[in-house]
Amino acid sequence: MAEYDAPVSPSVRPSLTDGLMTQILEIIRQGHLRHGDGLPTVRELAKRFSVTAPTVREALRGLQATGTVELRHGSGVYVGAGASRMVLANPHTTGITTEATLQLVEARLMIEPTIAMQAALHRTPENLDRLQAALATALQPRDDGQPEARLNFHRELAASSGNTVIYEVIDSLLAVRRREQREVRRVYDHRADYDQHVAIFEAVAGQDAERAGELTRAHLMEIRNAVASRLS
């Protein structure tokens, strides 16, 4: 039998789009560009890398999915907030299940009480302002099609910890499991959720780390029990 080289799976072989995404990332890195800085246009990128405009758009959409770039209609291409992140959410998720929702809450229960304690110790006036802004809109009707229109209390709590990686872990966890988060909101009483957030905020504002941790643990335990009851 003649020997031959096994073909490389298309899923393994780097694609033209993957290579282009890497080259665009190099533009950001070498140019020391930051969030909001402009990037070359689609036409300019196509000419620079000798590819077609649709190929450039496909690469940009891939980078947009992780927040690395922002495509602003009628304006251009800009560096996104995710360009410097060390932890990124996977934009391709599987279907929602009650079991997955329960695991999400349990994962948060493992880490968020400690985050709340750190937030109480390290929060800044700006952090408190953003936590208050998250509380201010919490009881308003929610449009899940416009998640950027409101602040998430737990994201802002993580930001208040002063640890960028921890913030990115929570941000990515909530982003990649957005559908499970909607399920949590559906099964858990909105008013109770708000009141518990207010109590956590007051502990953080008062720099009472132990109480902030205890309240966060109790809050997530109640959510866990509400989700778990649906499995019974």
Score class of each variant (00 low, 15 high):
residue 156 E to V: 01
residue 113 P to L: 02
residue 167 Y to E: 01
residue 176 V to D: 10
residue 128 L to A: 11
residue 176 V to F: 05
residue 162 G to Y: 15
residue 166 I to H: 04
residue 145 G to H: 14
residue 121 L to D: 00
residue 179 R to I: 09
residue 128 L to W: 02
residue 150 R to L: 05
residue 162 G to K: 10
residue 185 R to M: 01
residue 146 Q to K: 00
residue 132 Q to K: 09
residue 163 N to E: 13
residue 145 G to A: 08
residue 176 V to G: 05
residue 145 G to E: 15
residue 145 G to Q: 09
residue 184 V to L: 14
residue 170 I to Y: 04
residue 180 E to K: 05
residue 182 R to K: 05
residue 138 A to Y: 09
residue 150 R to C: 12
residue 128 L to N: 11
residue 177 R to F: 06
residue 183 E to H: 15
residue 134 A to H: 05
residue 155 R to H: 13
residue 153 F to M: 09
residue 149 A to P: 08
residue 161 S to V: 06
residue 117 M to P: 00
residue 130 R to A: 00
residue 123 R to G: 10
residue 168 E to W: 12
residue 185 R to C: 07
residue 169 V to Y: 10
residue 177 R to Q: 13
residue 162 G to D: 04
residue 183 E to G: 09
residue 144 D to R: 11
residue 147 P to K: 02
residue 111 I to S: 07
residue 175 A to L: 04
residue 125 P to T: 06
residue 140 Q to T: 05
residue 159 A to M: 14
residue 152 N to W: 02
residue 175 A to T: 10
residue 113 P to C: 12
residue 131 L to C: 07
residue 171 D to W: 14
residue 146 Q to A: 15
residue 121 L to A: 15
residue 146 Q to W: 05
residue 177 R to I: 06
residue 176 V to L: 09
residue 173 L to H: 05
residue 183 E to F: 14
residue 142 R to M: 07
